[in-house]
Design a binder for these strands. Structure first.
Lengths: 331, 331
DNA sequence: GTGAAAGCGCTAACAG
DNA sequence: CTGTTAGCGCTTTCAC
């Protein structure tokens, strides 16, 4: 059957402890016996059992990642960043889709605890008291990635969404636009609210009126945005620019505009968010906020490795830089 | 510290065996003692340790998924299909990115065995003898998803790529095109070769010449396709249509054409592959082969559950249907 | 319907 | 530098 550490020990005429030492790279082994053990491991085709190891050592070298939806391009880029750093530090990722469903999120966290993960990476639009309680109830470190907790109760990696929203809107204002629409995803999502606040701040600062008709904050897909931009374009005082909270929505805005016979950016300037790969896969190419998506995942995972390793962490609520990438969807 | 099955047993005045039985839904427990145990589980906040359980039962309810790149939209949709069915059957997924690197793939498979996964879902452009040997060396069931092994040595879920390639090309021919280009990803990938064979078969069947200059088979990204289509468009006898092996490449072809001042589909008809979400996120919207990406993942995972459960499987090399979706990138 | 006891394969003191 | 010995927390016969 399967060959165990015991078989190797017997065949190599050493104790299991010694085999364990060489497998774990413990230096306290005489070179000659090390080679002997290594040889018989090779010969027998021994492969350590991570489950047994996990039970004995209370470490599984596995982390749980709870993500709204891997098939969403933003999150899949995040996931890739997480995965790459995890690999670098010899961790495996158990990936779970939550669809932002709170019940499911809570249940997934529980399952991750059952599986004895060494750490958790959590992504969601909103985190509640129940989330925090569940995290605090265990000693497993948690890091939030692209997920905002106003009270910073949990380590996290984000960008400054409010500033980004402000800058995008300001950019549009500086282009001479006075009627700027705002198209966002779920309005309950804290991150979208922050972007919205930035939008409002920029308008107010320039003494521009806030027109509720220009604000559509429950759009989810490309096609939703196609619809809603067309609706805006039918107004008599139609907007001349739109700021959207994701690139996918921005593509929808561009296409909706074009479908109606208008031109981007001549008739409508479009500003996106995230700078996902979609941003260059459209014509005109999208002006957008470059959010270092991959890096957020990578930095969050790196932070988690430090936490799991009980290393000192200077700053546990990391804010990564963002910037405006100008392309042709704005003048 | 953490509460174990032993603590529950003591508190409930039963043996660990009984606690184990109620936790596992074993019917041989008197209802009254079941409730008693359930209550103390609740009271103590007992949560079974999946690692210990895995060691004792030799089942981890975890499956390994080895995927080229989650951040690729095609694979992320596949991954989502896998994940959803896995959840349905109470399995967790350990997700690994291989970047199609054979060394890495082999090493990941090994890691999955170490982690004692109950099954493996494998995705790659090519599978070699080494892969097969590694799979056969263990009794862990494996299913290939959107991954073709000519010899059907491993259970798999695919579509008929050759037929799809043929149909796409035939469609373009029936539109009156005689100069049809072919833009594909890695030419070493078996799946791309099959699509290519279908392309060739359609041309031959209609007695159309095969022009090697029209065949560009090592394009990976949207921007690669932008370049290469522009190159084709500079030829004196430029193609009037192009068949690409992915939607991303098709978007590149569309945008390259438009960037050069030509129109799609008037000057060039473009045919994609996969019908990912990208297909409707472009103007003109993309005519493409609808490959049931999510379903391939879902069916593959379902097949794997049967294999893990040692159920009878009527057909272990599943071919799912595909179809042409007509949109506006063709006339 | 319930309990006792033997592992599952490995790590981690502790000796020597 | 190496071996002995407890467990880690649970499942699973096998009795009763």
């Amino acid at each position: 059957m399967t060959v165990t550490i015991y078989d190797v020990a017997r065949e190599a005429n050493v104790s299991m402890a010694t085999v364990s030492r060489v497998v774990n790279g413990n230096p306290n082994v005489k070179p000659s016996t090390r080679t002997k053990v290594l040889e018989t491991i090779e010969r027998l085709g021994y492969r350590p059992n991570a489950v047994a190891r996990g039970l004995a050592s209370k470490k599984t070298t596995t982390v749980g990642a709870i993500i709204p939806d891997v098939s969403n391009i933003f999150f899949s880029e995040l996931a890739r960043g997480i995965e790459d750093i995890a690999t670098m530090y010899k961790y495996n990722i158990i990936l779970n889709n939550s669809d932002q469903n709170r019940e499911r999120e809570l249940q997934l966290i529980d399952t991750m605890y059952e599986k004895q993960v060494d750490g958790i990476l959590f992504m969601s639009d909103n985190i509640s008291k129940e989330h925090i309680e569940q995290f605090k109830g265990e000693s497993v470190p948690v890091v939030l990635a692209a997920t905002y907790d106003e009270k910073n109760r949990v380590p996290s990696v984000n960008i400054n969404y409010e500033a980004a929203g402000y800058e995008a809107t300001k950019y549009l204002i500086d282009q001479g636009n006075e009627r700027i629409a705002f198209i966002s995803g779920d309005k309950e999502a804290v991150i979208n609210q922050l972007k919205y606040q930035g939008y409002i701040r920029a308008l107010k600062e320039s003494f521009l009126p806030i027109n509720d008709d220009y604000i559509l904050n429950n759009q989810y897909t490309h096609d939703d945005a196609v619809q809603s931009i067309q609706q805006l374009l039918e107004m008599t005082d139609k907007p001349t620019a739109v700021f959207t909270t994701s690139d996918e929505l921005a593509l929808g805005a561009i296409h909706g505009t074009q479908d109606k016979g208008y031109k981007v950016p001549e008739d409508l300037e479009v500003f996106g968010f995230n700078n996902t790969r979609l941003a260059t896969m459209v014509r005109p190419a999208l002006t957008t906020i470059d959010q270092p998506t991959y890096d957020i995942g990578a930095v969050a995972m790196r932070l988690l490795t430090k936490l799991m390793n009980k290393e000192e962490v200077e700053e546990s609520n990391v804010i990564l830089p963002h910037r405006i990438v100008e392309r042709n969807s704005t003048k």
